[in-house]
Design a protein around this nucleic acid. Sequence first.
DNA 1: CACGATACCTGTAAGC
DNA 2: TGCTTACAGGTATCGT
Length: 271
Amino acid sequence: MPELPEVETVARGLALAWEGRRFTRVEARRPDLRRPLPVDLAQRLVGARVTSVGRRAKYGFVATDRDDMLVFHLGMSGRMRIDPPEIDRHDHILFTTDDGRTVAFNDARRFGSLDLVAADALESLPGIAGLGPEPLGADFTPAVLAAAREGRVTPIKSLLLDQRVVAGLGNIYVCEALHLAGIHPERMAGTLSDAEVERLVPAIVQVLEAAIAAGGSSLRDYVQLDGELGYFQHQWRVYGREGDACRECGGAVARVVQAGRSSFYCGACQR
DNA sequence: CACGATACCTGTAAGC
DNA sequence: TGCTTACAGGTATCGT
């Protein structure tokens, strides 16, 4: 589920549920996520009022009227469930607010994480320090990507997954953006022309904005807090469509494994 | 140093 | 039907 558009969707849902509310109860049911949960998570959060919810790359953050800021990452299988009808074994943390509602942080694979940091230390948190520009921000320009690709002998697919180059893309949206830009995932990054870089940057922006507008992509579970499915998966151009017809030319979508991840592409449209 | 491979953990689906 | 295997949205770490 969670690349930038899915995390953005979750953050917007949390903002609606939490901004202005106070935590009345926080229950850590299982502390061993990717990193151990802070042992004093509950006592530091209960009584705090949420002032804002935001996102940086694939991290969500929740600012409060205290110095503690909640920072979460959904890993591969993380989600937030609001007022779950029943608690299941993967609901690792339960947050109850002063309106009586409960949000469950659910993560079957436990690749996700949740930390409390001082508000002014967000940028130095491991994982956030060193992140590249936000792809939907003003800092992500063709000139920046052109410089990042210079001399690189790694495939463009791998370069775009490097969070130090641009922060927030994952396997799905890299495949989608490369198809939209007409660039083959196995092209060595350093061989991209300026014209290709000029196409790639707006392709990334377009794909991400469309995905956010659709509420993200759902594979086998919902992504939105209220249980609604994101529906961007119906608009996938190539991801998960091996053997199916390319929506542009009708040719078969191909799959190749790069650095252990599946890449989907059209060999006719992408060069 | 810049790569790719591997490990982390669980669920699901496909193959036999 | 039941068992085994491959694969899955991410990222930190470890070799080469």
